[in-house]
Amino acid sequence: MSEILTDNNNKVHVENMNFYYGNVQALFDINMDIAEKKVTAFIGPSGCGKSTFLRTLNRMNDIIDGTRIEGKVLIDGSDIYNPMTDVVALRKKVGMIFQKSNPFPKSIFDNIAYGPRLHGVKDKNQLMEIVESCLIKSALWDEVKDRLDKSAMGLSGGQQQRLCIARALAINPEVVLMDEPASALDPKSTLKIEDLVNELKKDYTIIIVTNNMQQAGRVSDYTAFFYEGKLIEFGATGQIFTKPNQKQTEDYITGRFG
């Protein structure tokens, strides 16, 4: 089933997508449109395919042996699985935040400068500007401005995750994928990340996978419910949480399973 959300410009368009790990089918006939500069949340019990689906949007599944995809994924109207697509440019455009914060064992500065340097920024002042603006955007600047040359491994878990967000922003993405970004964090750090997501949606299209339904309710404009590799229901967050159309969605939301 497909739901077209017409009140917005659509950034991502997915059509009849099937996805396989070897012989095991993980996603079944997904159709979806994702709105620009909004927050879209993917919810569902673990193993439902929501993370797999997220990773198809920047082709991170490519690096896993034996995966196969059918159907179309369009971003800004161009098919990202077209053989001529430049995966590197795609991943520049579609940034990603991982479940487990993964700062590189380098200084805070070098972590954020990693992406810009790859893409050809060499000027020290320009790098400094990027680092500063990204740290300000990720609400980390005040905490780390005096120790940019210190190792990122010394930061707390919540700080590390915000650093990873800053790092992703440094390559000027248009879409930011977040794979359970707060699942390993304490409630206080989680709230900080959620505030940040609210702030960032002014400039970025954000897609967030979460296991925490309250979180989906708090941060997202749209919510998609996945179950056993299928997209069961997709709509405005308010509607999904108050009067879902599907029985399975209701059961999940009300805590009857999952």
Partner: peptide, 25 residues
Amino acid sequence: KYMREGSLALGATKWETIYKNVLPY
């Protein structure tokens, strides 16, 4: 593995990832 994924997700090519974010360590 996350050292590789993190770098690839930032738009590094495979070789850039290996050369800059795997080999040094």
